[in-house]
Structures are given as C-alpha cells and as structure tokens.
Simulated scan of single mutants.
Amino acid sequence: MKKVALITGASAGIGKATAKQLLQDGYIVYGAARRLDKMDDIVSLGARALKMDVADDADMVSGIDKIIKAEGRIDVLVNNAGFGSYGAVEDVAIADAKYQLEVNVFGLARLSQLVLPHMRAQHSGKIINVTSIGGKMATPMGGWYHASKFAVEGLSDSLRLEVKQFGIDVILIEPGGIKTEWGDIAFNSMKKVSGKTAYKHLVAKTSAIVGKAEKNASDPSVIADLIKKAINAKKPKARYSAGYMSGPVLFLKKWLSDGLFDKMLMSQLK
C-alpha cells in the first residue's frame, strides 16, 4: 500500500521540492497551496493538487476530508506553508502581526489537529513542521516572523511528547538560507513598513546584508532531502537543520551568551 503525504505550501520552494522528492519515492502526494496554477508541474509528475489557504478553516477541513475519502489514510503531513512579514515591531500593524501568526502557527496547528485522529487510528504517522533557524535566534526587523517560528518550536515539542504514545512522530525541520521567494516577500515588506520610519537606517543595512546572503543560499532540494531523511528514519531526531549558515548560526547561538551573540549579529550591520 502506497503511503499518503500532504504538503502545504507546495506551489514553490521547499514545498514543491519536497513534493517532487516524495513522488520519486512512490508516495501518493497531495500538494496544497492557494495558487493551483503554480502546481501544474508537480501535477504533471503525479501529484494531486488541493486549493488550500491555511488561514481558512473550511479549506483545511475540506482538504483533509478529500484525502481521507479518496485514500482512507494519511501517513505524512508536511506543514511547510508560511511567510515572513518583516518590519520593526513598533511599525508593524497588529492586524498584520496576527495574520503572520494565523498562517505560520495556527494553520499548522489546525492541520495537525485534523490529521491526528486518522494517524491515531492507524497507530502511525509523521508530522513534519518546517520552521527555521529563525526559530532559535532573532534578527532585527523580523520580530513577528521569529515569534511565529519560536512558537512552532515550542508547540512541536509539546505535541511530540503527547502523540509519541500513538506511534506518531513530530519532527522539526530548521532551514538556514534557502533560495525561495520568501526573501523577496519578507524584505519588500520591511522596506514598505519601516523604510521611512525611525528604523530606516537599520532597514538599509539589513537589506545590504540580506542581498549578500541570498547569493549563497542553498537550493530547496537540500531541505527536501532532509525531510526525506527524517521521514525514513525509524527513530527520527526531534530536529534537523541544513541550508546556508544553519550550522554556524545554531552552534554560536547555543554556546555564546545573549550579549555576545547580539554583538556578533549587530556587527554585521555596521
């Protein structure tokens, strides 16, 4: 029996690369995104496309219902959908901050709630939550994005402890710099929100550093391979990380004091 996987945010970047990887591995893959036309290439490879906005409960309920009616099971949920809305904490409208959390945290949590009864009935399943090294450290201008990723880290740790008894694994994937459209969205937002405020000089410095980093960013396939590794592991680790600067950043964050880490980070913005 082929295993069934649902991947959110499958219209681009990590989600699309993961869909291609799991299709190659023989999975029945459902790709979910708001933009159906952006998934034509993975549909041509055999994926099933679902129109799903993870900020819309009806969309999520309908999507899971369709999968269960068609396949009778769901083995893997890859919670990949998310975005970064950058800008100084002082400048970002609270409504926009709430939407950031709605997509990055509550959408992920709701889909997990919806698949868990089916995974418990099977006594098997894997929930893969894609966070970021930005769930372990924070940069200026990314407060609400980092808040969402820190939240997913904590939520996943609790969920992992709760559902292990049912044969279900909860795994965090923490990418470093990856070549996706995420950066353009995040930093265009930063310029729009804070580019003409008291934080404009920090915006300019941050943009310059980000431009350099994007040139060295890793291909999304690096994370797709990591997700495959996590899924196939008999005893998966709680966390996996890969991508540009993920290793050095997580190492320094672990061993440096907050003060030293802050100094190191801000020295890059001079």
Rank of each mutant, 00 (worst) to 15 (best):
D41T: 13
I173A: 08
E102T: 12
T197D: 01
V92H: 01
K196W: 01
M1C: 09
A95K: 15
D56P: 01
L265M: 15
M137L: 15
V54M: 13
G167H: 03
H123N: 13
V29K: 12
D258P: 03
T180R: 04
I94Q: 10
D219G: 05
D258M: 10
T206Q: 04
G167C: 08
I68D: 03
E153M: 04
V43K: 11
M190G: 14
A55E: 11
G167T: 02
M52K: 00
V29C: 03
A230Q: 12
K270G: 15
M245E: 08
G87W: 08
L250R: 09
I67F: 06
Q113N: 13
K3M: 04
A147G: 09
T180A: 07
K66F: 09
I74W: 11
I28L: 06
A88H: 11
M245I: 04
D91E: 10
A230I: 03
D184K: 15
F261W: 12
K69T: 15
V29P: 10
D59N: 09
L172A: 07
P220F: 06
V170Y: 01
A186H: 06
H146F: 09
I74G: 07
I223L: 14
Q268K: 11
G15T: 03
H123Q: 14
K66R: 13
D59M: 02
I64E: 09
Q122W: 01
Q165G: 01
G176K: 00
I133A: 00
N129L: 05
L101Q: 11
K20C: 11
K191P: 07
S11T: 03
A58H: 13
K229H: 13
K270A: 14
G84Y: 00
